[in-house]
């Protein structure tokens, strides 16, 4: 089946072609300018960050050989030839890993409960007063923007060395992050049930309990589980500043060049993170159906 393609007459086509070329040229110019600005920023950044390609190339061999060394036992054999020797401290490390998970669990739960208490005050549609919403929002923003490990540094001084500082740091950071997400869920909730409950003369608290809460709990739980995943990673480094968990062992191993210990602890952390990811993913799928897993 042959179809004729109609071609516009010459002058008309030339005008259209011209316009097209001009549009493309404008777009290209804009792209080039943006790229130039970006590269200028990169160069400035490279100078600022003391990037030294010579150091990098001289020492890149170190990076490769570092991984070579952390997978070598003291006897010179590869780590996987002697699992028992590689994981010689598994008893102690497992205990520290358990502590890490516990830190993130307690921190996440405490943060989720706090966020739960605050989020109705922060959401646009349920907040009882604008000034209260403003204050709560700024508080949450503060808790979320200051990195957890900075809180941990300060808490370790206030509460003493140990997991307590880590738990509180994670709790505060999670409050900030979850408070924002929770209040966004509430803002997306249907307001008709609230009107229904209010029309019966219910107080603000009853409105929240019977009209909003049933709509939002699934979303809350899903976000809290996600946060738990993130917090396990976060808790694994809390030990760097003395706030408990496996990080303490890891930082000692790295700083003192106990090579095979580094790889053993890293492998244990990675496996734990995998398992937790898969477990919470499964749990989310079970609780809220497939689409909640994204």
């Amino acid at each position: 089946m042959a179809t004729a393609v109609s071609i516009l007459p010459g002058p008309q086509l030339a005008a259209l072609n011209d316009a097209y070329r001009r549009a493309v040229a404008r777009k290209r110019l804009r792209m080039t300018l943006a790229a130039a600005v970006f590269f200028a920023a990169l160069v400035v950044a490279a100078i600022g960050a003391e990037v030294n390609l010579r150091t990098f190339f001289t020492y890149f061999g170190n990076f490769v050989s570092y991984f070579d060394r952390i997978f070598t036992l003291e006897s010179g054999a590869r780590v996987w030839t002697d699992i028992g020797e590689w994981f010689w401290g598994w008893h102690k490390w497992l205990k520290m890993l358990g502590e890490t998970i516990l830190i993130s669990y307690v921190g996440t739960l405490a943060g989720a409960v706090l966020a739960f208490g605050l989020n109705f005050l922060a959401a646009e549609n349920t907040s009882p007063a604008p000034w209260l919403r403003f204050v709560v929002r700024r508080l949450l923003e503060f808790a979320r923007t200051v990195p957890g490990i900075v809180f941990a540094l300060i808490f370790v001084i206030a509460f003493g060395l140990g997991p307590m500082g880590g738990v509180l740091a994670i709790a505060i950071h999670s409050t900030g992050a979850l408070g924002k997400l929770f209040s966004e869920i509430v803002e997306n909730a249907d307001m008709k049930p609230v009107e229904g409950v209010r029309s019966t003369g219910a107080s603000w608290l009853s409105c929240m309990r019977f009209a909003v809460l049933p709509q939002v709990t699934a979303g809350y739980a899903s976000y809290a589980l996600l946060r738990f995943e993130i917090n396990v990673r976060e808790a694994s480094v809390m030990g760097f500043v003395g706030a408990g968990g496996i990080g303490q062992e890891l930082v000692v191993a790295i700083r003192k060049f106990y090579y095979s210990d580094v790889s053993a602890i890293l492998v244990m952390i990675i496996v734990t993170v995998f398992v937790i990811d898969i477990a919470t993913g499964w749990l989310r799928g079970r609780l809220f159906g497939k689409d909640a897993r994204a």
Binding site: F63, S236, L250
Partner: peptide
């Protein structure tokens, strides 16, 4: 699975 801080420690060694 490895946190940025851990990578930082490794690169400091390198």
């Amino acid at each position: 699975g490895v946190d940025t801080l851990i990578w930082a420690l490794v690169w400091i060694n390198v």
